[in-house]
Design a protein around this nucleic acid. Structure first.
Length: 349
DNA sequence: AAGCCGGGGAA
DNA sequence: TTCCCAGGCTT
């Protein structure tokens, strides 16, 4: 065994050792059942454990197995997902539950190759399920793994470049102790989350600092290299809350846009003229809605939304624009809605 | 390869 | 403010 191979194997065993005494006790780590493992992995995509965990508990409570999830409506699933963001995860997860029930007889596919064919299951999630539930020797590469490996080995490849993923997968595979895929994969991610953190990593207490490139070269803050910056665009949205006899007009967002599948109000998006008065649809142009609140800032990763609300009591004689529908307060409670809509309903109605 | 898709917490 | 989180899909 050459020096490099010895070094990497040493690294993998050290991480596993570290994990045995430093890991958090998380519910999805107490099982080999692919259903809760898959559920937790989808919830935790781009999401911190502290943020995702309550959702995991609620989903397991509401849908204890794949059949329960498949039997639910997409609307129910989205409603439970409210506030977690990246709603396509919920829609894909629901579709995959139905696929597994209908095409796999309710039994989860048990290999990376099959898993990655499922909707909402990409390279990371397929490897995670395959290793955690089925002991397949396939390395996971997530944000934590990019960080740990780039620092330890001094890999300066841009992690935003999809091509560099293979390099990291090979490095992870070399470090993986034979027969310990599940533990090693958990270990390297947990190590990234708790020890080798993005800012101010805990190098003094790190078990592998003596052989870590970044520590030896004081390059922790330079790694991983990530060049692509997502630029944030501003977007002005004005909602006109149409009311009649205690009901409110809402619509489902259908286009390929933010909050697809969620419900909101009559929407007047202002391009060049960000502020009220917004231009109402032709049928409603003679009315003057009452401004209620906003514009309030709502930040997404890639958008800076400025949202304002006004209200209009719509006379019986005026018909509703086609895409809208009347909902009672009780019905509205059950609809999946974006966070700003929920905040408005809570504060002003 | 690049753009799109949420929301929150830490510094 | 900026960064990034147990990423994946579409174009």
């Amino acid at each position: 065994m050459n020096t490099q191979a010895t070094l990497t194997a040493h690294f993998g065993y050290k991480l596993v050792d570290w994990y045995q005494s430093n890991s958090r006790d998380l519910p999805w780590r107490r099982t080999r059942d692919p259903y809760p493992i898959w559920l937790s992995e989808v919830i935790l995509q781009q999401t911190r454990v502290v943020q995702g965990r309550p959702y995991y508990e609620r989903f397991m409570q509401a849908f204890p197995d794949i059949h329960a999830l498949a039997a639910a409506s997409e609307k129910e699933v989205l409603a439970l997902w409210q506030g977690l963001g990246y709603y396509s995860r919920a829609r894909n997860m629901h579709a995959t539950a139905r696929t597994i029930v209908l095409e796999y007889g309710g039994k989860f596919p048990a290999s990376y190759r099959e898993l990655i064919g499922l909707r909402g299951v990409g390279d990371y999630t397929a490897s995670a399920i395959a290793s955690f539930a089925f002991d397949e020797q396939t390395p996971v590469v997530d944000g934590n793994v990019f960080r740990v490996l780039s620092r330890y080995y001094g890999i300066f490849e841009d992690i935003a470049n999809p091509a560099s993923r293979n390099l990291f997968k090979k490095a992870a595979a070399m470090a993986m102790p034979p027969g310990q895929a599940a533990t090693f994969n958990q270990a390297i991610m947990e190590f990234g989350a708790l020890q080798c953190t993005p800012v101010s990593p805990l190098c003094p207490s790190c078990p592998v600092n003596s052989t870590c490139y970044a520590f030896r070269h004081e390059a922790q803050s330079m790694l991983p290299v990530k060049n692509k910056k997502t630029q944030v665009k501003e977007r002005h949205i004005h909602y006109v809350v149409l009311c009649r006899n205690g009901s409110i007009a809402m619509k489902e967002r259908t286009g390929k846009d933010i909050w697809e599948g969620l419900f909101d109000f009559l929407e007047v998006e202002a391009g060049a003229a960000p502020d009220w008065p917004a231009v109402l649809p032709e049928d409603l142009a003679r009315f003057s809605p009452t401004p209620v609140s906003g514009p309030a800032k709502h930040l997404l990763t890639h958008r800076r939304l400025l949202i304002s609300f006004s209200m209009l009591e719509l006379p019986e004689t005026v018909s509703l624009p086609a895409e809208l529908q009347w909902y009672t307060p009780g019905e509205i409670k059950e609809l999946p809605k974006p966070l700003p809509i929920n905040r408005f309903l809570k504060d002003f109605l």
